[in-house]
């Protein structure tokens, strides 16, 4: 077994309204910071897991993201996986 670390990012689909992101973007304008045209808020999830190999770890993560961490109706996910030192 090898140990892996992963960071999953869950983002709202582009078609889904993100009122929290929009309100935050507007607040940046009130700080006097100009030029911010897009701000979308998602989630970052750090994980550690054990698996036989990288491919097996990737499958476990994909299953986890598809079935729990993201709701496919409104969200997409990406994942960075690396072997733990």
């Amino acid at each position: 077994m090898a140990r892996f670390r992963a960071q999953v990012r869950v983002q709202l689909r582009p078609s889904v309204l993100d009122p929290a992101g929009e309100a935050t973007r507007a607040a940046a304008g009130r700080l006097g910071l100009e030029g911010l045209s897009r701000l979308r808020i998602g989630k970052a999830i750090d994980l550690e897991l054990e698996a036989d190999d990288r491919e097996s770890a990737r499958r476990t993560l994909a299953d986890l993201c598809d079935r729990l961490l993201a709701n496919p109706v409104t969200e997409t996910w990406t994942c960075e996986l690396q072997e733990a030192p």
């Binding site: 309204l17 929290a20 109706v73 409104t74």
Partner: peptide, 11 residues
Amino acid sequence: LPGALTRNRDL
């Protein structure tokens, strides 16, 4: 049931 529920438009 289909669909999903997300944050209210005006928060």
